[in-house]
Simulated scan of single mutants.
Amino acid sequence: MTSQIFSPDVEQVLDLAGIFVFALSGGLLAIRKNFDVFGIAVLAEATALGGGVLRDVLIGAIPPAAFTNLGYFVTPLVATLVVFFLHPEVARINLTVQTLDALGLGLFCVTGTAKAHDYGLGVVASIALGMLTAVGGGVIRDVLAMETPSLLRWDRSLYAVPSLVGSTLTALLISIDRLNTLTGSTAALLAFVFRMLALRYNWRAPRAWHRGSSNTGEH
């Protein structure tokens, strides 16, 4: 199966690392929203596992991996405890959290695309589900916290686009039968670098053309 890009042990470690960092971001938002410990745990779990669960349900990988691997479910709870007791310290290393988050983004868009392909989806659908794996948890997090999802906000640096690039490259590698540990890592690294550059230079997607004039009724 093409989804086994890395060895099982390596992929397990990478998955858990990505889940942990995504859970931290969910927990930190819950703290800012003044949620109690249960709310923090819910937001951490949803952020860390939401994208993968949605992907697995859509492709028919039932039950989702999040419910068959105890480590996937427990890791966000560990992140919950970290932010509950140490949230000022975690908030102070925000750049580190964002860097690790970008790494998780790169990993999940690649493995998500590959898994979707393994379940018989075509190129476009596999790309879409790869991106969903990477950003879906963040959307669920923001909706639960009653905020406009970050990837829909023009005032936030690019997030979905780097995952789309990584997913697209992965799908292309699959189509030419060149997806392996090296090329998969390259695709993940490209998405990671893209995301970090977007953070560094505040890259944003363009808004509607002539948006200002259309609001005033000018032609």
Rank of each mutant, 00 (worst) to 15 (best):
residue 80 T to M: 11
residue 67 F to T: 03
residue 52 G to C: 09
residue 161 V to D: 04
residue 146 M to V: 02
residue 50 G to W: 06
residue 119 Y to D: 06
residue 72 Y to F: 12
residue 144 L to M: 13
residue 73 F to A: 14
residue 71 G to M: 09
residue 65 A to M: 12
residue 158 L to F: 10
residue 138 G to C: 04
residue 136 G to W: 05
residue 108 F to G: 12
residue 109 C to N: 15
residue 126 S to C: 06
residue 168 T to E: 08
residue 129 L to W: 05
residue 127 I to G: 09
residue 165 V to Y: 04
residue 145 A to V: 01
residue 161 V to N: 10
residue 50 G to A: 14
residue 149 P to M: 02
residue 98 Q to D: 14
residue 145 A to P: 00
residue 154 W to S: 12
residue 51 G to A: 14
residue 137 G to E: 00
residue 116 A to E: 01
residue 66 A to M: 08
residue 159 Y to M: 05
residue 156 R to S: 02
residue 83 V to I: 01
residue 175 S to E: 11
residue 130 G to H: 13
residue 116 A to W: 02
residue 163 S to H: 11
residue 132 L to W: 04
residue 99 T to A: 13
residue 138 G to K: 12
residue 59 I to T: 09
residue 105 L to I: 05
residue 83 V to H: 07
residue 169 L to W: 06
residue 170 T to M: 04
residue 177 D to F: 12
residue 172 L to C: 12
residue 125 A to G: 10
residue 117 H to C: 03
residue 175 S to Y: 09
residue 180 N to P: 00
residue 101 D to C: 11
residue 95 L to Q: 09
residue 153 R to K: 14
residue 116 A to L: 02
residue 150 S to A: 12
residue 53 V to S: 12
residue 59 I to Q: 15
residue 75 T to Y: 07
residue 83 V to K: 09
residue 160 A to N: 06
residue 71 G to L: 07
residue 63 P to V: 04
residue 84 F to H: 10
residue 53 V to F: 11
residue 97 V to G: 02
residue 126 S to Y: 07
residue 65 A to R: 15
residue 99 T to K: 11
residue 116 A to D: 00
residue 124 V to G: 05
residue 166 G to I: 14
residue 159 Y to S: 02
residue 180 N to Q: 05
residue 162 P to E: 07
residue 62 I to D: 10
residue 95 L to I: 02
residue 86 L to H: 13
residue 181 T to V: 10
residue 57 V to D: 06
residue 146 M to D: 13
residue 89 E to K: 15
residue 128 A to C: 12
residue 96 T to L: 13
residue 89 E to N: 12
residue 150 S to Y: 00
residue 139 V to N: 07
residue 75 T to W: 05
residue 94 N to V: 04
residue 107 L to T: 06
residue 82 V to S: 15
residue 97 V to Y: 08
residue 166 G to Q: 13
residue 134 A to D: 04
residue 153 R to M: 01
residue 170 T to G: 05
residue 170 T to A: 03
residue 121 L to C: 03
residue 143 V to M: 03
residue 106 G to E: 02
residue 153 R to F: 00
residue 67 F to M: 10
residue 145 A to K: 05
residue 111 T to G: 10
residue 62 I to Q: 14
residue 163 S to L: 04
residue 69 N to M: 07
residue 53 V to W: 12
residue 122 G to P: 00
residue 123 V to I: 07
residue 164 L to K: 03
residue 131 M to L: 11
residue 157 S to P: 01
residue 53 V to D: 01
residue 74 V to G: 06
residue 51 G to S: 13
residue 135 V to S: 05
residue 84 F to M: 05
residue 159 Y to R: 08
residue 87 H to L: 04
residue 100 L to G: 04
residue 111 T to P: 00
residue 69 N to C: 03
residue 163 S to W: 01
residue 156 R to P: 00
residue 103 L to W: 04
residue 81 L to W: 05
residue 95 L to H: 09
residue 128 A to H: 07
residue 103 L to Q: 03
residue 160 A to E: 01
residue 174 I to R: 15
residue 159 Y to E: 01
residue 79 A to S: 13
residue 70 L to M: 15
residue 173 L to A: 08
residue 143 V to A: 01
residue 77 L to P: 00
residue 112 G to P: 03
residue 104 G to V: 00
residue 154 W to D: 08
residue 168 T to Q: 11
residue 143 V to I: 06
residue 178 R to K: 15
residue 172 L to F: 14
residue 117 H to L: 06
residue 89 E to C: 08
residue 53 V to E: 06
